[in-house]
Design a binder for these strands. Structure first.
Length: 283
DNA sequence: TCTCAGGGGCGAT
DNA sequence: ATCGCCCCTGAG
């Protein structure tokens, strides 16, 4: 495995929190195992503090992927200084020190969060793993088989009945529709050069993608650090901590947090989300 | 066994 | 702009 220096980085809260559904932790080996559409990933503690061992499969030693995914070059201290503006976010940072925001693959992030609509995190994780079993390919990770997240093409070409076997209910038609649009319009090749607003328009034009899911993709995949998804928890945070009216239009609430946290609302939102929700770390 | 909410979005009104 | 509905799971 490969060694990486990774200071000020809490892998546990970052990988097993609400921003990614593709990681599992083995308490006996202290190892994290993840899957994406293209890779299986193993991460475990390194020989010294602030270090990790990692490996990718089937393409081994994919350092570019790891560094981008974990955002190792992100200016973490500067971000913390910027968002530490009040007692609430300071308490959240103290509760979850070294929590990070990942940069995940675009199509997989979009498809995953389409499944999040009116769903709970444990159920989403379960459905995705069912989907991996039924539609995903298998990769060998040093002797253990890992199922990958299904390709966009496979999802697009799978019947709704089969998709529903993964217990996603009414989201099946959205999942398939989005997968088909990704293929047909080759969105992945264009989305990365768009501005925040243009990317949001492109995303919300997809059937099954509204403001909230679009914002999840903007922060968790496209790197718009000023965007935070205003779900039921986000609105509770704004209501309870920041005296905002939760019935305010989504776009106005978004503008408010964007300005308040000066470009890092996505990170502030992540701290506050985990803080108010509390992590449910058992499977 | 039952209820209710869950990291929403769509379509009808 | 509001509102019922969607399919199923997890938690109490």
């Amino acid at each position: 495995m490969n060694l990486l220096y990774l200071p000020n980085y809490n892998l546990h809260w970052t990988l097993l929190g609400g921003q990614s559904f593709g990681w599992d932790f083995n308490p006996s080996t202290k190892e994290y195992r993840g899957f994406t559409q293209h890779s299986a990933i193993r991460i475990k503690p390194g020989p010294k503090p602030d270090t990790i061992f990692w490996q990718t499969y089937p393409e081994k030693d994919n350092e570019d992927f790891i560094k981008r995914y974990l955002r190792v070059d992100f200016p973490y201290e500067r971000m913390l200084g910027t968002i530490s503006k009040d007692q609430h976010v300071k308490a959240a940072i103290q509760q979850y020190p070294n929590l990070r925001v990942l940069q995940q693959d675009f199509e997989e992030t979009l498809l995953s969060f389409v499944l999040s609509a009116n769903n709970n995190i444990k159920a989403i994780r379960k459905s995705i793993r069912l989907m991996n079993e039924i539609l995903g390919t298998t990769v060998d990770a040093d002797g253990t088989k890992v199922r990958l997240f299904p390709s966009t093409e496979i999802i697009a070409n799978t019947s709704l009945d089969t998709l529903r076997e993964t217990k996603i209910g009414f989201r099946a038609k959205y999942l398939k529709s989005v997968a088909q649009a990704l293929l047909k319009n080759n969105i992945d090749s264009k989305i990365h050069i768009l501005s925040e607003n243009d990317a949001r328009i492109a995303l919300t034009s997809l059937h099954g993608v509204g403001d909230k899911i679009a914002d999840c993709v903007l922060i968790y995949s496209l790197g718009f650090d000023n965007v935070t998804p205003l779900d039921v928890w986000g609105k509770r945070i704004l209501e309870r901590f920041y005296n905002q009216n939760p019935k305010t239009k989504y776009g106005e609430l978004r503008n408010w947090v964007d300005e308040y946290f000066e470009g890092f609302a996505g990170w502030a939102g992540q701290f506050l989300f985990e803080y108010v929700r509390g992590l449910n770390l058992q499977s």
